[in-house]
Design a binder for these strands. Structure first.
Lengths: 189, 189
DNA sequence: CACGGTTGTCAACAGGTGGTGACATCGTCA
DNA sequence: TGACGATGTCACCACCTGTTGACAACCGTG
C-alpha cells in the first residue's frame, strides 16, 4: 500500500506471493468475491495486476489458494472453556479482531457468488468443518459445528449491516453476556 | 421467464412494475447485489433491460425500491410461542420456504457490496429492526433482535455454503431440535 | 380515421473487468 | 564482463455492465 512508491519491491517471488495471498485474504474477508478486483489486490501489494494472474493463473485459482492457505485454526486455539467468551468478544468488538474469523468471513462474503460458493463448498469441509467438528467432539458434533459456524457468521454480518443501530458500550456488554453462554453451550455439547 | 415468447406482455405499466420488483426481490435474495444484473431481472420478467432503468432510474434505486417494498412482516406473523419451531423449520428445510426470510436474505447477500450495504443500513432500522424489536418487546429487545436476525442469517448462509456436507433427514431433525429452543428463548427473553 | 401519450424495444456507449503477450529490469553465475 | 533465467511492468484485448437516446408498437380519445 504505497510501498511501491517508496522502493520498487525487492525481487523476491516467494515474499511477493505470500504478500498477494495475504492482501487477497483481507480483501476477500471484507468484501464479496466479485467486489474484489485484481487491481485492488495488486494496489494493496504494490504490484502490477498482471503479476497476480501470472502467479495464480486466474482469480478463481487465487481465491482457492487463499482458502487453502488459511485453515480455521485460530478458532480452535486457546482454552476450550473460554471459547464462548472469546468469540463473543470478537463478534461484538470486531472488526478489529476479525483475524480469528478469516475463514468464516470469506465464506460469508462470498455466499452470493456462484463461482466462489462452489469453491467454498469444495474446500470448506476438509479445510474447515471437518477439523472444527473433530475439535468440538461429543454428541452431534457436525450439527453443532454447522450451527456454531452459522451463528458466528450471522452475528458478524449483522454487525456490518446494522450500522444504523450502533450499540452503546453498555449494550455491547449485554450482547456479549447474551452470546457467550450460548456459544459456550454449543461447544460443551 | 419465457413468458415473452408466448405473448408479448400486455401493456400494463403497474403490473410490469410489480413483476420487476418481484423478480428483483427473488434475485437479490438469492445472489449478491453485484451478481444480479439488470439483464437477468429483465429476462426473468420477459422485458427489455432498458425498461427497468426507465421505471426505477438506476440499479441502486431499484434495490432501494425492493427493500422498501418488503418489510419483515412474515417473521412476525403467526403464533409467538411457535416462532422457534417455525423458523428452525424454515432454516433447516429451506430454501423452499425462504419467502419468510426475504428481508434477511437480501441483507445477507448484499453484505459484501458497499453500495448495497449502505442502502441496507439506511433502510434496515426503520423497515426491519425497529418493528421487529417492538414485536419482540421485553428486556434488551434491540439486542435480542440483532442476535436473532444474525442467527437466522448465519444459519441460512451456512446452509447455502456447506453443500458438501449434506445432512441426513435424521440429522435435520436433530438440528431443528437444537435450533428451535435457542430461537424461542431469544423471543421469550 | 388521425392524433398524442403511454409502453416497450433496439442499438449503442462509456466504464470497468479479468486475462495475455511483448517488453524491461534485476540477480546470478560462468 | 556477458549472458541467461527470474521477476515485474506495460499496453492491450475481449467481454460484460449499467445506462441512454432514438425508434416502434399500441391504446384511448378527439
Amino acid at each position: 500500500m504505497g510501498f511501491a512508491a517508496v522502493c520498487p519491491r525487492p525481487r523476491n517471488a516467494a515474499a511477493t506471493r505470500t504478500a498477494i495471498l495475504e492482501a487477497a485474504s483481507k480483501r476477500f474477508a471484507a468484501e464479496s468475491y466479485e467486489q474484489v478486483g485484481m487491481r485492488d489486490i495488486a494496489r494493496d501489494v504494490g504490484v502490477d495486476p498482471a503479476l497476480i494472474s501470472r502467479y495464480f493463473g486466474s482469480k478463481e485459482e487465487l481465491f482457492r489458494a487463499v482458502l487453502d492457505d488459511c485453515d480455521g485454526q485460530e478458532l480452535m486455539d486457546g482454552d476450550r472453556s473460554t471459547f464462548g467468551e472469546r468469540m463473543a468478544d470478537d463478534l461484538v468488538y470486531g472488526p478489529a479482531k476479525d483475524e480469528d474469523l478469516a475463514w468464516l468471513l470469506i465464506m460469508l462474503k462470498s455466499a452470493g457468488s456462484p463461482k466462489a460458493a462452489e469453491i467454498v463448498q469444495q474446500l470448506s469441509v476438509e479445510c474447515f468443518y471437518q477439523p472444527f467438528t473433530e475439535w468440538l467432539g461429543g454428541k452431534d458434533a457436525p450439527i453443532r459445528a454447522r450451527v456454531l459456524a452459522g451463528i458466528l457468521m450471522g452475528i458478524a454480518v449483522g454487525r456490518d449491516l446494522s450500522g444504523g443501530m450502533k450499540l452503546s458500550p453498555e449494550e455491547c456488554e449485554r450482547m456479549k453476556a447474551l452470546l457467550a453462554p450460548m456459544l459456550q453451550e454449543l461447544v460443551d455439547g
